[in-house]
Simulated scan of single mutants.
Amino acid sequence: MDEIIAFDQALFLELNSHQSPFWDAAMVLISNKYVWFPFYGVLVGLFIYFYKRKGWLMVLSLGASVGLADFISSGILKPTVARLRPCHDAMLGTVNAIDGCGGQYGFVSSHAANAFAVAIFVILLLPKKQWLFKILLLVWALAISYSRVYLGVHYPGDITAGALIGIATAWLSMYFYRKASERFLFWQR
């Protein structure tokens, strides 16, 4: 375990050491959850507009995916594991924390968990021919995740674990979405 932690710290220091004024501003913007609210609003609107009642089930399922990912990451793992964020870890020395440090604990990244919960759930909903939009969703989730390392608030391991939680909750929510949409006639219109 010590070797994994040492690798995670070394990778963090390498990724966090490359800074520029342009990327500082870009990563702060990418990492800001409020910047993405219009995107979420459009997504919800499209689900409801095109799928009517089934769209509402999609929205509820997507909300469950994100809510569960956020609860597991912030409500359970951060206080239980209690791993310091890189910007709070004095053992690392100087960390480029561009936009403040946030809470004390960072394992796992809620940003990564939530972004991957959204991206994977929507990817699973989309037809196969929508490959370009699927790639854009993955790039979006990866950009948000990487921004957390760039900003000095998460280790790469925090991001990886958060992404895995988001992927798992998306799959679980998709499973229940499909079961509900098949079983209950109300959601089929």
Rank of each mutant, 00 (worst) to 15 (best):
M1R: 14
A26T: 09
I76D: 03
H111G: 10
G157N: 08
F39P: 00
Q130N: 14
A97F: 00
A163C: 11
I76F: 14
S20L: 11
G102R: 06
R83S: 02
S20G: 15
F107T: 07
Q9C: 08
Y34S: 00
V44W: 05
W131G: 05
Q9G: 02
F107G: 03
S147Y: 11
K128V: 12
M174L: 12
K134C: 12
N32T: 12
A141V: 11
V118K: 02
D158I: 02
W56T: 08
K52C: 04
G106F: 01
L137I: 13
M58I: 07
D2M: 12
P21V: 12
Y105A: 01
K78L: 01
K33L: 07
A10T: 11
F184A: 05
K134T: 09
I165W: 10
M174D: 10
A10S: 15
W171I: 14
P127T: 09
A141C: 12
D89R: 01
L29T: 14
L126N: 09
F71H: 13
V35R: 01
A141P: 02
A64N: 07
A90R: 02
L138T: 11
G106S: 14
A25Y: 06
Y155M: 04
R189S: 12
A82D: 07
I144F: 02
L29K: 11
G55D: 10
V44G: 05
A170F: 06
R148T: 11
S20N: 15
P127Y: 12
L57S: 05
Y49E: 04
V35F: 10
I98E: 00
V42D: 01
E3Y: 14
A97N: 00
R53P: 03
T94P: 01
L142K: 08
A119C: 09
W36D: 00
K33V: 08
H111I: 13
F39L: 10
V66T: 09
G45P: 04
A25F: 07
L138K: 05
L43H: 04
R189A: 08
P127H: 13
V95I: 01
S31C: 07
A141H: 06
A97Q: 00
D70M: 04
A141Q: 08
F22S: 09
A113Y: 06
V118A: 06
F116C: 02
A180M: 14
I159A: 05
G75Y: 09
L172V: 13
H154M: 03
S74P: 03
Y177A: 04
I159Q: 03
A90P: 01
G67M: 09
H18G: 03
L172E: 07
A141L: 10
A64V: 13
V149N: 02
F121V: 06
Y34C: 00
K33T: 11
Y51S: 11
S109E: 03
G100Q: 02
P156F: 08
L29F: 15
R85L: 00
I48A: 09
F176L: 14
F133M: 15
F133N: 10
S145I: 08
Y155I: 02
T80A: 15
V118Q: 03
L43C: 12
R53D: 03
T160C: 12
S173N: 09
A180L: 15
L92V: 00
T80Q: 13
S109Q: 10
R183L: 10
A168P: 05
T160R: 06
Q104T: 15
G100P: 00
L62D: 04
N32Q: 13
L136A: 15
S61P: 06
D89K: 01
A143Y: 09
V122A: 08
Q130I: 06
I5T: 14
E182N: 14
